[in-house]
Design a protein around this nucleic acid. Structure first.
Length: 216
DNA sequence: GGCCAGGACACCA
DNA sequence: TGGTGTCATGGC
């Protein structure tokens, strides 16, 4: 028997089943910057130790990180893979925050749409990383349509095969989330994803298998 | 041992 | 807008 649910009901069901994931707050927002870039096309298992090592060496102090050369940064993050690109992206991100003296309060009054456009202009900050920053660094209620989220919603009947923007738009138009809920939802989806979203066969063994999300 | 991971980007039609 | 090659390491 299939049970039809809304996006918000999906969130409630996942929260009830899995409990709060407590992905936040990262003690330092720079940890989110580092982590979100290092995780690009890599797995948490390989990247987590690298993030820890960066923390040991820099304490996630933006000034210390920014003082590093491209070569030094590459050596530090090499085990995460794609290290040349990621070192470049990290330095570009640091430049961006440096223009505001690493003071997040400077961004508070900027409209989300405008801020997102500014983030997307940073080399290496694409759709997903921009939304991760908006949610976990800037506290905006955005939906992060990463590959796990798109797969989950596909298996739940929301779409056949849609891209990042399309899936995000559908969710944003059909649900209502506070900033904290947006953070929790993404954490729940990714933790669920690690267990059940490698493929559809695996999803069908999960406790969400008999649900279908309805379009309003 | 090959496959793949919480992407982004350049280049092409 | 959509499809494809590239970047690269380490875990499974």
């Amino acid at each position: 028997m299939m049970t039809e649910i809304t996006i918000n009901e999906l969130y409630e069901i996942m929260l009830k089943e899995m409990g709060p994931q407590k992905w936040w707050p990262a003690e330092r927002w720079m940890e989110t910057v580092v982590g979100s870039i290092l995780i690009q096309n890599a797995s948490a298992i390989t990247v987590d130790p690298v993030i820890e090592e960066v923390g040991r060496q820099t304490n996630f102090d933006p000034s210390i990180l920014q003082a590093m050369t491209q070569d030094e940064l590459e050596t530090l993050i090499m085990p995460a893979g794609l290290y040349r690109s990621k070192a470049k992206y990290l330095l570009a991100a640091l430049d961006f925050f440096a223009t505001s003296n690493f003071d997040l309060a400077q961004f508070q009054t900027i409209e989300t749409k405008v801020l997102r456009k500014e983030l997307r202009a940073i080399p290496g900050i694409g759709n997903e990383t921009a939304d991760v920053w908006l949610v976990y660094i800037f506290g905006r209620a955005q939906f992060i349509a990463d590959s796990y989220a798109r797969r989950l919603l596909m298996y739940l009947g929301v779409h056949e095969k849609m891209n990042y923007d399309q899936v995000k738009k559908i969710v944003m138009n059909q649900s209502e989330f506070t900033p904290d809920e947006a953070r929790e939802f993404h954490a729940l989806i990714d933790e669920f994803g690690k267990m059940y979203l490698r493929n559809e066969t695996q999803f069908k063994t999960s406790w969400l298998q008999d649900y279908r999300v309805v379009q309003k």
